[in-house]
Amino acid sequence: MRQQQLNKDAGFTLIELVMAIVVLGIVGITTSKFVGWGATYYVDVSERQLVLDDSRFVIERLTRELRSAVPYSLRTLNDTDNNTACIEYIPIVTSAKYLDAPISPTSSSSLTLVSPTSGAITAASQISIYPTAVADVYNSASQQTFTIDSVDAVDEDDESQVIHFAASISIGQGSPASRYYQWTTPVSYCLENSKIYRYQGYPAAVDQFNPTELKAADDVSYSLMAENVSNSVLTEAPFHVDSHASLLRHGQVAIYLEFSRLTDNNESMFFHHLVQIPNAP
């Protein structure tokens, strides 16, 4: 009889069940919030890191490339209507000193150079001597940039080399340091709305190409370099070129980039970066 009474009293009352359900509900809600906060924090940190990686990559890559630019080959193009901006420069292929040059008013169809220690002088490439303005690099009419027609072998005795032009040339101004720069084609970094692209393989032109013209140019190749860029070209252009030439350096480039997070456009990262261009004419 006593055993039957014990078995009858061994269950849960309705109040106990309700209390247990309430407690379990509170624990479940609290646990889910902790899990949700953790997931939100992880996504937030991942997006921040993604934006940071994008910004570091494009700034470091652009900085490294600009330091090897032909003097006065840097120029910018801003289109506030389409929120696009480009910086263009020409990479140096080889550089050294010239020995015998036809400086105006003299003229000649050849030029004697010191053979570069790295790389090689090649036909159909360009040679610039003492460029002190953008037009001296991109416009052959300035008589500071010329197209190489053919190249002689290196003289083993004095390491000199003679290059030839299709017609007689007369260099407008000689370099105080007797420097020359050989180059082939320009490179452009363009901000197009929220992305930055790198263009190469297109010919140099007197007027700077915009992104639409670059994409339509023959043999051009381009790569996506960064996303989530939120610059407004109207209020703050991303690229500024300040040229103060000397025998030691050409000038400097100020880079201003604003990166916004994917899920919160109100939170942005700002980068102000100054690049010294060491190459002088």
Rank of each mutant, 00 (worst) to 15 (best):
S160L: 07
F57T: 15
S246L: 09
I21M: 13
L113Y: 01
A133G: 03
G201M: 01
V45T: 13
Q3L: 14
V45P: 00
C190N: 10
D219R: 09
R179K: 12
V18T: 13
Q4W: 13
T31E: 06
A204M: 05
A101V: 12
I29W: 00
I255Q: 08
A217R: 04
V154H: 12
V137I: 14
V162Q: 10
A135V: 15
S221A: 12
S160Q: 06
S95F: 01
V233G: 13
L52Q: 14
G25T: 11
L66N: 05
V114K: 09
T145E: 04
N210Q: 04
G36W: 06
P105M: 07
A205C: 02
V187R: 06
S140V: 15
C86F: 05
S230W: 00
T263H: 07
E156A: 15
L24K: 07
E236I: 02
L214S: 11
I171S: 02
L191G: 01
G201Q: 04
L50C: 03
N83H: 05
I129S: 01
D81V: 15
G119V: 04
V253L: 09
S268A: 15
A101K: 04
H240G: 10
Q3N: 10
E236A: 14
Q144H: 14
I171G: 05
Y130L: 05
P203Q: 07
R75E: 13
Q49C: 02
L274F: 08
D264R: 13
Q126V: 01
T185Y: 00
G11V: 05
Y42C: 00
G174M: 06
R56F: 06
A101Y: 02
T263C: 03
Y202E: 08
G11Y: 06
L74M: 15
H164C: 10
L224I: 12
L234E: 09
E88L: 02
Q276S: 11
E267V: 15
A237C: 02
L113I: 06
S107D: 11
S68V: 12
Q161C: 11
S232D: 13
F34V: 14
Y98W: 11
A96C: 04
V43R: 15
Y72E: 06
D158L: 07
Q126A: 01
S125W: 01
I277K: 06
S170Q: 01
K97D: 06
I15S: 09
E267Q: 14
Y130F: 05
S246R: 09
A124N: 09
T112G: 06
P211H: 06
L247C: 11
S246D: 07
A177R: 10
S46C: 02
L224F: 07
W37C: 05
S125C: 02
C86D: 11
N231L: 05
S188C: 04
V151I: 14
Y72S: 07
P186R: 08
P105H: 01
F270N: 14
T13Y: 04
K8M: 13
E227P: 10
L113G: 01
S73D: 03
D44I: 03
I103W: 00
L6M: 12
T30Q: 01
L14G: 12
L214G: 12
A167T: 12
V162G: 05
S108Q: 03
